[in-house]
Every structure is written in structure tokens, then in C-alpha cells.
Design a protein around this nucleic acid. Sequence first.
DNA 1: CTGATTGCAAAGAATTTGCACTGCT
DNA 2: AGCAGTGCAAATTCTTTGCAATCAG
Lengths: 162, 162
Amino acid sequence: MLERRSLIEELNAKGVRLTAQRRALIEVIQEAKEHLDAASLLALARQREPGIDRATVYRTIELLKKLRLIDELDLMHLEGEKHYYEVKTRREHLHLACFRCGRIEEFSTALFEQLKDEIARQAGFAIRIARLEVGGNCRACAAAEEAGANRKPEKALAVAGH
Amino acid sequence: MLERRSLIEELNAKGVRLTAQRRALIEVIQEAKEHLDAASLLALARQREPGIDRATVYRTIELLKKLRLIDELDLMHLEGEKHYYEVKTRREHLHLACFRCGRIEEFSTALFEQLKDEIARQAGFAIRIARLEVGGNCRACAAAEEAGANRKPEKALAVAGH
DNA sequence: CTGATTGCAAAGAATTTGCACTGCT
DNA sequence: AGCAGTGCAAATTCTTTGCAATCAG
């Protein structure tokens, strides 16, 4: 399921009207090095297309989701309840969110595909989106926690937050 | 993860203060037949404890999440952006949300455990929460869609093309 | 041309917070 | 008795919507 074509070409092919605003947003999302939320998307798009409004950002996100060109992520809601977006081109992967340092790690494995196959086969479910998000402590933070754990009094409620 | 004890006992054991409000909320969440969001939780809890406020609902949800007694779900945000909650007692399972009929199906498989093991091992990630949510068409709706061609309104989609 | 798309401003949904009071343990 | 827990109302955060103006095809 690889998409060689850029999102712009993809949209053209689907006969979607291309405005300057959409072009700006698409470029931003395509060139992004990290996962962007709607506000960041807006800020970056404004550098290219100053007048662009947040309503347009949300409407465009909706459009791209429906066309299945981008995926929406929660990333364990490490901060607030916003959503993050990524182009659907890279190899299918899942996200590991560290509650301690906040870093997002991507992870790929054939098991994920196998799991989806099993769901489709056993439940007869036609999967359109499968989102697996994991929260916990990354390798470094797990080690750090381990070290500090000996000194810390056990606090049932010390948590996840950030 | 075996929890034979009720949430109430669990909380007592952890030395958490038990108020009438918490008791009401816990009973509601424990007896729920379907996944409840904060608003439903509030409505149901009020039947037992009329004065209860929504702030208390959210604070209690937060508490139970931190104690790892409940899980928070998005259920593909089939309607709005609210969250749903379920007690962590049942066998670990994932959720299949049908975009067409809105039904939520639960699914269990050893592959999910294997996948988590692989993540823990290969990435050295200490998993605290692993949430897998799937969206698509359930067996019945997939069949119906197949038969009825494309004349059905969908719950979350349907774009361009025509 | 003409309907799809936009900006704007305002509304909406879901959740959180500050503060004084209440009630568990 | 003391302090965690609560209700209330207001605030915040994120997202959506109505409508008139604009622009792509």
C-alpha cells in the first residue's frame, strides 16, 4: 500500500479543488518532521499563506482524513486532548509515547499486520483504520525510574501525567 | 491481570478515601453494560447520589485511571470527541467500531499479547497502556454495503468521487 | 459562470480549575 | 480535628458552524 504520488497529485487525480490554502497545508504536513497538531499546522501554513484561518485547517484535515491520505493520532494525549496528523505514506507503524520524557517512538512489526488479518478473518470486520497507541516508559526512562525507585516511597498515585 | 475484588475493595486496600460520590460512580461504572462517557456516568450516578457534580465525575475518572482500575477509550470518536470508560477486569481486548451502524464489538486474541511482548522486548519499552482501536465495517454492514452498492449513508465518511 | 471553498466571528463540546465549604477517617 | 474531597461557576482547550465574500475550474 505504497503511495508514490505526492498528496497534491493524489488530490488532482481525485478531482479535488486545489486552493492556495490547501496547497500550503499539504506541503506543511508532507514536510513535517514530527507529528503536528491543528495549531502547529496553522502556524506553519501561515508562513506560506498568511491569511489562512483555523477553520480552513480543520476543514482540510477532515478532507484529507476522508480521502484516507492522512492518519489522525492521539499520542496518548500527553498534553491536552489535541490530535496529531501524519501522512499515510510511510510504512505502517505504531506509536510508543513515553509518559516520563514525552518522546514519541515509532515501531513496526509484522505482528501488527498479522493481528489485523486475524481481526478481519475472525470477526469478518472490514478494517478501514487500525490505530495502536502505546503509553509507558521508554528504555531510557524505564532505566532511570528503576534507579530512582529504590529511594522513592511508594506513591500509588504518582503518575502518567507529565 | 486478575482482579477478583470489586473496585471498592480495591480502593479500600489502597487507602483511598471513599465518599458517597465515588461509591456511586464506581457502582455505575462497574454495572455498566456498555461503554459510558463522562456525561452518561454523571447522569447515572445522579440517580444514586443526586447532588453529584460533573467536576467530581472527571476527578474520579482521573483517580481511577491513575490507579489503573479503568481504561479510557476513544471508540474511533464515532460521535464527538468524548471518551469512554471501562473497568479493567475483563480479559484484555480491543474494540472494533463500525462506521456504518455504530456498534462496538470487542475482540480478544493472543496475538495482541504477543505484539505487546515484542514491543517491550525489542524497543525496551515498559508498557503501561496499549490501546488498539479499529474502525471499519462490521460483518453485517460490510455485507450490506457489498449488496446495496453505494447507496447507504455512512456514519463517518463518504467523500468526493461523486 | 457557479458551486465549492474561504475568513470571520461566534457557538459548541468536553474537560479543567479556583475557591470556600463539607465530611471521611 | 485536619485535610482530602466536593459543588459551583467560570475558565480553558480544541473544534465546528453560519454566512457573506471569493475563487478555482
